[in-house]
Structures are given as structure tokens and as C-alpha cells.
Simulated assay, not measured.
Amino acid sequence: MLRYKRIPLSDGATSIPALGFGTLIPDPATTKRAVAAALEAGFRHLDCAERYGNEDAVGEAMRDAFAAGTVRREDVFVTTKLWNTNHRPERVLAAFQASLRRLQVDYVDCYLIHTPFAFQPGDENDPRDEHGEVIYDSGVSLIGTWRALEALVDSGRCRSIGLSDVTLEKLKDVVAVARIKPAVVQVESHPYLPEWELLEFCREHGIVLLAFAALGHGMEPNLLEDPVIKAIAHRVNKTPAQVALAWAAQRGTAFLTTSVTPSRIKENFDLSELPEDAMQQIRDGIKTNIRFNGVIETGVPGFIPRAGPTQGSR
């Protein structure tokens, strides 16, 4: 069944559940409840990040689920991310270990470089100069950071590594020199931003494309109001969200969706395969092309307010 689909990773030893639950959620208490509801609904892939500021809450929810016997650690694919201020190789291990402690796990299944942009190292997540401009760090290269992630895999506490918010060009640069190839690439993708060229490159190199903003975040133009999506939803007796998510899984990508409402979480897990002609309709019939998040140009995620991770789902 589509909802239980897993995609093999390039290391050959593990696979990633196609259906993932994103954890950029307003506050710790809400995060904990939402993660618990996601695990109860059947999600076995949790996407976290140092930058979201709530790894502790995700860890508590997992700990409670493991203790209750609801789910086993080995059944949950846990991803987290290295933030931009920790790109210097000497900072990577400490950042990784801090995430492990907050998540209360002995290893993570996948560790991603949150964006390819290095920010000024330090405790300020969003370093800015007197003009409000981001302070970048020119003292480190993306390849240098990647080498530090490869060392984490060597240590055995990180099963696989990858990149997030990356362009095809930067991905090619890493793939060309990597000793351990990226297993996962997380980017914004949905029927309004299908990223076919990037997906084809990922397929050729055994990389899983993991789509965030898979439902477009309800931003304008609203993907879930698209006539093609709505017509298919009516025909197959599913919601527009279920159609968009099934499209993502069926075309070979994994995806992330986020909600704090248990009924919506269950809906987002309750997917069924679309007819092949519906898949073709989405590919051929949707002409809108838009990126909702400009993070790949700046390194600043558009769905994380500068004051801190208080809203959104990225």
C-alpha cells in the first residue's frame, strides 16, 4: 500500500518511508502532541532540525511511544539537520551530538546539511549586520562540511547523510567529489514545482528526493484549489491534499507534511494510489510554476520567522 511505501537508500542497508512527518511546529507542547499523533497514525519517518528549536519535544514524544510499545526505535526513520552556523568542520560533531541528546536517540538515520550556506559561526542562529543583512562565513566550503558529515557516518552514529535546500548545480558539485554520496536531498517540491530535472539526476545517482512543502503550505496560488487537483480528488473520492501527496509518493519521491490536528494527520497518512491517467493529468495539465520558499538563494528558510521557530512547517 502506498502509505507504507519505503524507498531504498544508496547505502543498501536501509530504506526511508515515503511518507514523512515534518516537525517545524509552533511550540514544544504542541510539537510533542503532534509527533505522538503522527506515530499513532502510522508515520514512521520524522523530519527534525537543530534550527527548529524543538528537538527536545520530538525526543520526548518518541521516548514515550517507545516506552509504551507503540513503536520501536528501529522502525522510526529519524532525520535531523546541521544548521548554517555550524558548517565549520570542527563544529559539526558537537552540533550532531547535541541533536542526539535532545532527540534522546543513540543514532540518527539521516543527517542533512540544512542549507548549503554557511553563516557566521556562533550561538546566534540568524546573524545579521547593522543593515540587517545575513553575515555569511567565507572561511568554510560546502565540501569541507560534507567531509565532516562523512566522518559521522564512519563513527556509526549516523546511518546516512544528505543535503537540503540545494540547487542541482551544488548537488552535482558534492556528488562529484563525495567519498560517501548523498543518500537524500530535501527540497521544496509539489505539483507547482515538480523539479523533474533534479529528480532525474537523483534517480541516476541513487539519491532519494525528499519533498518539503508538498502541499504548498496553503500559500497563493493555492495548490489545493487547483482545478486539476480538485477534479481528480472528486473522481477518486479523496481530498485534494491526499491527491497531491499520493502524486508525490507515486512518482518516486518521499515527502513531508505537517499538521497539529490529529484528524488531518490521519488524513495525510491515508493515501491510495492514483490511476496512471491522473498522474499524467497532473504532469501535463498543471501549468503553474512557483517556488514558495526562497531559501536556496539565501540560506534563510522562508517559513522560519527570524525571531525563532514559532510557525510554519519548514
Rank of each mutant, 00 (worst) to 15 (best):
R63V: 05
M1T: 13
I16A: 03
P121Q: 05
D126Q: 11
Y111N: 02
P305R: 14
D75F: 01
C158F: 00
D75A: 09
E200L: 09
C48F: 07
T85G: 08
V175A: 06
D165C: 09
Q281N: 14
G299A: 10
N54A: 14
D75K: 01
A183L: 11
I180D: 00
A241L: 06
T239C: 02
R291C: 09
E60K: 08
S99L: 03
A67N: 11
A98H: 12
T31W: 06
F66W: 09
P221M: 11
G53V: 08
A211Y: 05
A13D: 09
K266C: 11
D129H: 07
R73L: 07
L209H: 08
D173M: 10
N293P: 12
P227D: 02
A233T: 14
Q104T: 10
L193S: 07
G252F: 09
A214P: 07
Y192K: 07
G156A: 06
N237S: 13
T80K: 00
F303S: 10
P28Q: 12
D75C: 07
R73G: 13
A248D: 15
N268F: 08
M219H: 14
D27E: 15
Y136G: 12
L171E: 12
F119D: 06
A214W: 03
V184N: 04
D226E: 02
D106A: 15
A41D: 06
F43Q: 11
R33A: 12
D165M: 03
L93F: 02
F96V: 04
C158I: 02
C202E: 01
F117Y: 14
E188N: 12
A36V: 05
L112G: 00
H45W: 00
L19T: 10
L93W: 03
F117E: 08
F212A: 01
T257A: 03
V105N: 04
L163I: 03
R306T: 11
L193H: 14
A94N: 09
V153G: 05
L93R: 14
L152G: 00
L163S: 09
S10G: 04
W196Y: 11
L256N: 10
N268P: 04
I296M: 03
V166E: 06
I304F: 03
A254S: 09
A29T: 12
S263C: 01
P26D: 15
I282E: 08
S155L: 01
F66T: 05
T257I: 13
A49P: 03
K287M: 09
V236D: 05
H205V: 06
